[in-house]
Amino acid sequence: MRRLLLHALLIIVACLLLGAVVNAVRFDKDRAGKPRRLSWVTPPAAKFSATDIVALEEAERLWNEGGAFFLDARAPADFAAGHIAQAHSLPVEDFTSRYGEVAGLLTPASVIIVYCDGEQCDLSHQLMGRLRELGHQHVRVLLNGWTVWKTAGLPTETGAKTP
């Protein structure tokens, strides 16, 4: 029994060391060009300022007027299963490769509403950051967007493509 626990402990310590060493020396990058090496210090959570958020009522008004461009930050499968009507899919994970699909429809002045799903979902915030880096100034997040939109009974669509 003691030997069993000792062996388990040895395995764990060896693996932790290996993990720390690999993280210290790895230099590979992910598809978005970010290094896969992580900092030991977790960066603070992204904070929304009040102007980053669009209320459901305003999002609905903009949708009715056609005054905003809706972007879905979730994975393609989630988008296909159901999304805000007329929204376009732009998964953050594939931002670099898929931005071109919507780039022609947008100008720096376009009003853009990004959303994902779940109170804790961070994807729309990331997408907002990426879009702002490219000069889009009027990007806002509809918090917990898919759920609040659907719950409010507003128009939705299914399918991978936006007509």
């Binding site: 693996c15 932790l16 993990g19 993280n23 210090v41 977790t42």
Partner: peptide, 22 residues
């Protein structure tokens, strides 16, 4: 939402290696 935010990166760096080793 189970652990303090400070632990997220250390756990993400290390835990997979324990899974791999075991």
């Amino acid at each position: 939402r189970l652990m303090p935010r400070e632990l997220l990166h250390p756990v993400a760096i290390l835990l997979p290696w324990v899974e791999l080793g075991a």
